[in-house]
């Protein structure tokens, strides 16, 4: 009989009960997944949480991060040294420099390009703008300026407007832009294109036109340099104007004592004479009737 009580350890190839169990446990898929994923994840979260639980450590972490960020931002590769503006006149250029008050040199991280673009695009004289940072540390502003097509006279002075009726710039004196037509009246800014059409159609009268006045937000009056007014109808004003021109050329109508040519009713054009002309006419008629 072999001794039942083991006194000295004998060489046994068999795994001990616990080693056998641990081996089986390690072969359990769920346990292995837990060991591979669960335990490291728990350790990371636990250690990070424990470290972050002290305010001093948190402060150190945020300071360190901010410091690191600042270091990166201040690298020469990210420095913007000057601003280049393309496509703008000198006045507009000054204006853009005024609205983008950057204090160069500056890190490109500190420039909000989208906001800067919005600021520049909000300028009256700017139709559209693109802003980018060019290699070499240049803030490149490309501007498409608005093109003034007319002078608008409002209550507060003269302004340049573009085809859409937007203000481009204030105008100190009419003479500065004598080449542009003058428009006035409520609602005139919305139909600048129509006004330009009429002026183009004026032909021989073009030199005489002082300006166009929008009446009742529906029709145009043309004011001539002589102070005569041509009242155009709401619809088909161009034909009416051509008719006036034809009358003028045929009968020299506008060189006579006429203050107003009323074409609002196409079937019945009306002329208003000056007072003296009217008196003269009345006298002539009186003579005739007498």
């Amino acid at each position: 009989m072999r001794p039942l009580i083991r006194r000295a350890p004998i060489l046994d190839p068999a795994p001990s009960r616990w080693r056998y169990r641990v081996h089986r446990l390690m072969l359990t898929p769920l346990f292995r997944a837990f060991l591979k994923v669960g335990v490291p994840a728990f350790l990371i979260v636990f250690i990070a949480g424990a470290w972050l639980s002290s305010a001093e450590n948190r402060g150190r972490l945020t300071d360190g991060l901010a410091d690191l960020r600042a270091q990166i931002e201040q690298r020469p590769e990210f420095t913007v040294r000057l601003m280049a503006i393309d496509g703008a006149e000198d006045a507009l250029r000054e204006e853009i420099r005024a609205v983008l008050p950057y204090d160069f040199p500056l890190s490109s991280f500190d420039i909000d390009l989208e906001e800067a673009r919005a600021t520049v695009a909000a300028l009256n004289a700017v139709e559209s703008a693109t802003i980018r940072i060019r290699p070499g540390g240049i803030l490149q502003v490309d501007v498409t300026p608005r093109v003034p097509v007319a002078v608008w006279r409002g209550h507060d002075g003269l302004k340049l407007i573009d085809l859409d009726g937007r203000f481009v710039a204030p105008l100190p004196a009419r003479a500065e832009r004598a080449d542009l037509p003058l428009v006035a009246g409520d609602g005139a800014r919305d139909v600048v294109g129509e006004a330009l059409d009429l002026i183009a159609a004026a032909g021989p009268l073009q030199g005489d036109i002082r300006g166009l006045v929008r009446m009742g937000e529906r029709r145009w009056d043309i004011v001539l340099a002589s102070g005569q007014r041509l009242l155009l109808p709401e619809d088909r004003p161009r034909q009416a104007l051509e008719r006036i021109i034809a009358l003028d050329q045929a009968r020299d109508m506008l060189s006579r004592d006429v203050t107003v040519v009323d074409m609002r009713n196409a079937a019945r054009p009306v002329l208003r004479l000056t007072d003296s002309a009217a008196d003269g006419l009345r006298q002539v008629r009186g003579l005739e009737t007498q």
Binding site: D12, A14, Y20, H23, R24, L27
Partner: peptide, 17 residues
């Protein structure tokens, strides 16, 4: 113990519990 030896070795070879 002998059964444990055999089963453990087979499990090790199969890599499955």
């Amino acid at each position: 113990r002998a059964i444990r030896t055999a089963v453990q070795a087979a499990q090790k070879m199969a890599n499955v519990r």
